[in-house]
Amino acid sequence: MKRILKLLAVLFIVVGSLTACASKPKVIEDLKVLFVPSKDAATIIAQTEPLKQLLIDALAEKGFEVEKVTIDVTSSYEAAGEALAAGTAHVGFIPANTYVLYSEDGVEVILAATRAGLNKDSANAKDWNDGLPTTGDSTNQVSYYRSIALAGTSDYAQALLAKVNAGTELTWEDVNGATWCHSSTTSASGYVYPTIWLMDKFDKKITDLAKHYKVEAGYGQTAADLASGACDIGVGYADFRRDYEAKWTTSTTDGGFGRTESVWTETGVLFVTEGVMNDTISVSPANEDMSDKLIKALQEAFIEIAQTEAGKGAIAIYSHEGYKVVTDADYEATRKAAEVLSGN
């Protein structure tokens, strides 16, 4: 009996020791979070300050004792990618194209920022052409936005729109016969993704078009040129008509475009591109603290933080409204975009 009692005592000590070890939190001395310099660095640091304690508290609930959170704004987008690749930081808020560039060096995407989607999101252009406004839908949080090609008011543009609405695919001759207006070559929705569409459909680029020009005054000029008929096909982000809806029917003497009908009835969508992915939260597997468990904890923590008032205020600096778990496979279109930007 004494022997059994001794064995039970030893077993109790062992189990107790294992339980204590299992419950002991993983200590991270300094969790380093990087932001890219898309805005003034001092403004980013000030607005994201609440993230420090929010992360400490959220990760504590998931078995990580974070002693300190350091938030820095890098000198460039590339500097953020290089730091994550080298393992000198844990987490980076970086754009999709920066992630793709440094994914080859081991950087891993764990979340994409979400924003309110639209009431129309079909890949079929015809579905957008019901004559009704495209509106925001805050209940539908999405991790991307689309680029569209709009047919303007010219006779040629309207003939192309009629083909699309009849369910007839556009040919290279159709699109090459139009005058295109587009943004600079680095604009995702105003140049890069429409170029990808042309490459996928016809193995052509915007530079191969017979008639195209870069607008110098932003999407306002694109809308104005579509209204006047100077441009047959204008490309831009999916809801850019919302920004010029009022101006469309305002008289030219009052600074408008002078049309008499709604922009939603006078223009129409000719094609819709793949999604342009929003900013990422990416991590550094090269950092000695990083593990699958920490990645999962960070994913859960950022999603939870974005649902709090303090968290919403902190991430609003980048117009983020929430986060969604994503994988590298979600960034194939972004890789195509990177090839376009590199001239390949």
Rank of each mutant, 00 (worst) to 15 (best):
T185E: 11
K2M: 12
Q158G: 11
L5F: 14
A112H: 01
R259F: 13
V164L: 01
G220M: 01
M290A: 06
Y156K: 10
N140C: 11
K120D: 04
D200R: 08
A149H: 03
L54G: 04
A314L: 04
D130Y: 14
L51V: 09
T186K: 09
V15Y: 12
N140I: 13
A337L: 09
L7Q: 11
W128A: 03
I4W: 05
A123G: 13
T134V: 12
I233S: 02
H212A: 12
A79Y: 07
V15W: 08
N287T: 11
A151V: 01
T48Q: 02
V263Y: 00
T253A: 14
L34S: 05
V73T: 06
A157R: 00
E65N: 13
F35D: 09
L341H: 09
L198V: 02
D328G: 06
Q158S: 07
L132K: 15
V192D: 02
K296T: 15
T88C: 03
D239T: 10
D155Y: 00
T260D: 15
E49L: 04
A188G: 08
D72E: 12
K247F: 06
G16Q: 08
T98N: 07
V276D: 10
E67P: 15
A223K: 05
N97W: 07
H90T: 06
S291V: 02
D254W: 11
Y193W: 13
T153P: 05
A149Y: 00
E29W: 10
Y99L: 11
E29K: 10
A125C: 03
P50D: 02
L84D: 00
A113K: 03
F257Q: 08
V272M: 03
L11E: 09
D243S: 04
V100D: 14
A246L: 14
V276N: 12
A337M: 09
A113H: 10
T207P: 12
N140H: 14
D121P: 08
T250Y: 01
V36P: 02
G236V: 02
L150I: 06
V142P: 01
D137T: 10
E169M: 08
S183K: 10
T253M: 11
K62M: 10
G255I: 05
E288W: 04
Y191R: 03
G311Y: 01
G131S: 05
E104P: 01
W172N: 09
T70V: 09
L294A: 07
A83M: 06
I45E: 04
E274V: 05
P194D: 03
C181N: 13
A149M: 04
T171V: 02
G106Y: 00
F202V: 12
M1L: 06
T98D: 14
Q158C: 06
T260Q: 13
V109G: 00
G275D: 00
A310Y: 03
S122Q: 01
A329K: 15
D130L: 04
I303Y: 14
T186R: 08
V91I: 14
E304Q: 11
K293N: 15
A125R: 00
E332K: 05
E339A: 15
S23T: 15
A224I: 03
D330F: 05
E274A: 13
V33Y: 04
A297R: 05
A306F: 00
